[in-house]
Design a protein around this nucleic acid. Structure first.
Length: 216
DNA sequence: TCGTCCTCTAAAAGGATCTT
DNA sequence: AAGATCCTTTTAGAGGACGA
């Protein structure tokens, strides 16, 4: 575990931390991993769609990045460099898995499992619906959507990592949103979103009735 | 070969936010 | 308040893939 003292109250930039790691302070790598874990997990999930495998890929990417740290030339930010390594590793993993799947003639499970970091932030039902909708997006749109909207990465960072032009990033994001709107409309048109269920109905009714009874 | 669909790129308009 | 900057959205055109 890293102490606050060890990382100078989080005031060091990623690039400075990298330099210190390269100079022997390897324990500082934990700080970088903790900082980027969530981002890398989400991006990896957007490619792989499997939590366990995303974990494995992240581990491999972290190890690869660590091994290459002394070769990091600071041409881009550390986060961009690390994300690029993760994407490469994820795509490689996907490729291997596809090959394996074809050999075994097995079906790929495209559904997200139920435990995801987004859970804490969202209503459970809405989260499932959104995840399902996001998972239906073609990979290239899903990646841009996750990076821009969920990870709040800049257009510049996204285009740099994905090796795309600026307008292409924008159009892909816009199309991803269009697809999501269309996908989600199925749910809200069938009243699955904001469903006023029996339990909630009872709760509201009971609350109001209690209030009325007290007033009278 | 031709038509259709999809993707990418570029440009422009308009809105939101930041800076002076 | 005005201008600058960034972002989103829309539109048009070019080019590739694919089926008839």
């Amino acid at each position: 575990m890293i102490t606050k003292k060890q990382i100078d109250n989080n005031t060091l930039s990623d690039e400075e931390i990298v330099k210190r790691i390269v100079n022997g302070e390897s324990y500082l790598y934990e700080h970088l991993m903790r900082k980027f874990n969530l981002r890398l997990f989400r991006i990896s999930m957007s490619i792989i769609n499997d939590e366990m495998e995303a974990d494995d890929v992240m581990q491999t990417a972290y190890i690869n990045a660590y091994m290459q740290l002394s070769n990091f030339q600071h041409k881009s930010s550390f986060s961009t460099w690390l994300t690029r390594i993760l994407i490469n590793e994820s795509l490689l993993h996907k490729k291997r898995k596809l090959k394996q799947t074809q050999l075994l003639a097995a079906q790929t499970d495209n559904e997200y499992s139920n435990d995801n970091p987004l859970r804490r932030l969202m209503n459970k039902e809405l989260k499932v619906i959104l995840e399902k909708a996001v998972s239906t997006l073609p990979e290239k749109y899903r990646l841009v959507f996750v990076m821009r909207e969920i990870e709040e990465m800049s257009v510049n960072e996204t285009m740099e990592i994905l090796n795309l032009g600026e307008s292409n990033v924008k159009v892909r994001l816009n199309r991803a949103k269009e697809m999501l709107r269309s996908e989600l409309s199925i749910y809200y048109k069938t009243n699955e979103v904001f469903e006023f269920n029996l339990i909630r109905c009872d709760r509201v009714v009971n609350f109001v009735m209690n209030k009325i009874n007290k007033e009278s």
